[in-house]
Write a protein that binds this DNA or RNA. Structure first.
Lengths: 365, 365
DNA sequence: TTGTATGCGTTATCAA
DNA sequence: TTGATAACGCATACAA
């Protein structure tokens, strides 16, 4: 008794192409991979093989290729929250660089949970990703798990956080410069009574930005009123910055101090601050100027549009991806790339939420 | 002359574990995969094998597994634009469902380009994804490419677009119901002079929402003024809805018609409309009420916060993922799932951008 | 210039 | 109850 024929025609393989072309398996492999050895073949044969492969709709099996050549053509991209615009801009930068490579980026959303981070990292290992990019400003980075990667010699870059390691590179904004830019912008507009809403303590970013603000204030000879320096609550959720900013504004208003400008930790915080001020009858920027940080896409969509310090996320993504790409390629050529920490220079983007201070402002309230 | 020892210890394999445990390769495989046959082994042996695997930090090689078992543990997720909040919410829903599976979602950003779409789809085929989810409301879906998937029998679901096929399921919002909800909301607030900013013609969504609005207007006995019905320009970029809404507001104001409410195609359009009105000295919602569509996260962050029709994107993502998941599992059990088109019921979320019409409103301008 | 043979790490079948 | 062994599809060293 014979077996029935297969209902569904199985996937076409190299062997199928070879048979159809009347050549051997290895010849087809040579041609389709553009190996130097293929040069020796008659041009006509090469073309014929290509045509047949096309006609049969042949697709190499990535698993087989990966197994044999130990090149998975996969590159892991871990983000702390896929819904965060900060992340998605970096992602776009990464994809732009990886766009015309044969590398397929595997985007994994850790959702700010350590457990998910480790779980996905494990999966990335199983799939033998050739490189890893971690977008991690809010994320609790699982150092131990990353060390495993390091041991495996998988090129890795981190965006948004400094991570000192001989083999892992970091790309992040120069937070201190950003803090300075933000302060100087307000100062140039005549503001001296400036409130600051700092970020959560555990974020490296927070301390650095504050350092920049302090330094710039000192240079300008402005004394920052401690009562006007608040801090967002600790939280693993970036979106809570909005609520935090709102609360901060309420507290600032409740204090007996006068202020004409606010430096917010990030854009979301700034939006919260603006709403809080607005509800108290204070108009932005007429009564109070507000500066954000990041330049997320909606900074341009709100009313007023937001003056902010741009991190150029897309560029940072491109840089990180390019580095990982190079490292992967350098594995073939043999030379070793050194890891680095790159501080990306920020830019101040002046929009509608800041304005010149006027004489009556800040006197009474 | 002996070869030097390998600098880097190679990846630990099943064979390594077997050797260390003093059992055969297949025994280890049985145990680690929890196969029924493993039940026959002494519990102690099983535990010992597990411990050793753990100790050696053994990770199965996904490529080898995929090659042998033709199960890649990969599921492709194609989105039209990773930076679009509409997408990211759906993604979160998908991940929520896939979260505790062994399936690794491969997120691919087509960036609204047909070419990228096809390219990524090809890569997905090469990597033998077990299922595919396409998030596609703006995207030009490459029908032909999807047909290939269909032929390969890979379970597929589309979110945000209707796609009739015997084997591909669709999950999308009930646009017509949404249009009705939006109109009825304004009508209940006393508005009868209502402007409509329709979406690009080529989007299915646009026509359906308009149908819903028309139907609801008819039921209410309201005649919609054709001069107050505008349309966004054709475009492949959702973010341009903002500019489009802004222009639309200008044109509405330039017309000689009076209106007290605007139904915008989506939230971004609504934001643009609000800005346009604002610049013309019209206050939202005091002078004009504006309704959006989608309920993207920033709808709650703006001033005024946006009244909108919620699509419940997260839920739709969960539904689509669950369906693909079931289809994949049903391949093992043998039974075949029927494809379906699911219209998700929308909800109206009333916020600050709409208010009751008052007597003096809409009379003069 | 083209073909043959081997092995990558698994899973699964069969034999013991 | 456990152990050999044969594929899976591809790349490549080597043979012809």
């Amino acid at each position: 008794m014979k077996k029935p024929p297969p209902i569904q025609k199985a996937r076409v393989t190299l062997a199928d192409v070879a048979r159809a072309a009347g050549v051997s398996l290895s010849t087809v492999s040579l041609v389709l991979n553009d190996k130097p050895l293929a040069k020796n073949l008659a041009a006509a044969t090469r073309q014929r093989i290509r045509n047949i492969a096309e006609q049969l709709n042949y697709r190499p099996n990535a698993a087989a290729r990966s197994l044999r050549s130990s090149r998975s053509q996969l590159i892991g991209v871990m983000v702390f929250d896929i819904a965060d615009p900060y992340c998605t801009l970096i992602l776009q930068g990464i994809q732009e660089t990886l766009g015309d490579t044969a590398l397929l980026p595997i985007i994994m959303d850790a959702h700010n949970q350590r457990q998910q981070f480790s779980r996905y990292l494990g999966m990335a290992v199983e799939h033998h990703v050739e490189g890893l990019i971690v977008v991690a400003n809010w994320l609790f980075v699982d150092i131990e798990a990353l060390r495993r990667f390091e041991r495996n010699g998988i090129p890795t870059a981190i965006v948004g956080r400094e991570f000192s390691s001989p083999s892992i590179s970091s790309v992040l904004v120069d937070n201190e410069a950003g803090g300075r830019l933000a302060f100087e912008h307000l100062y140039k507009l005549g503001h001296t009574q400036i409130a600051v809403v700092r970020g959560p303590q555990r974020l490296q970013d927070s301390e650095r930005r504050w350092k920049g603000i302090e330094a710039a204030a000192k240079t300008a000879g402005v004394k920052l009123d401690k009562k006007l320096v608040l801090q967002l609550p600790e939280s693993a959720d970036p979106v809570l910055g909005y609520a935090g900013g709102y609360e901060a504004a309420k507290r600032l208003i409740a204090s007996d101090r006068t202020f004409t400008g606010v430096l917010a930790f990030d854009d979301l915080t700034a939006f919260g601050v603006i709403r809080g001020l607005h509800e108290a009858g204070l108009h932005v920027p007429r009564d109070v100027s507000v500066v954000g940080f990041d330049d997320i896409p909606q900074a341009i969509l709100t009313m007023p549009s937001l003056t902010t310090v741009s991190q150029h996320m897309r560029e940072m993504g491109k840089t990180a991806a390019a580095h990982v790409l190079e490292s992967i390629q350098s594995k073939t050529t043999g030379k070793h790339l050194k890891s680095f920490i790159l501080l990306h220079p920020p830019t101040l983007i002046a929009r509608e939420s800041t304005a010149k201070v006027h004489r009556t402002q800040g006197r009474q309230r």
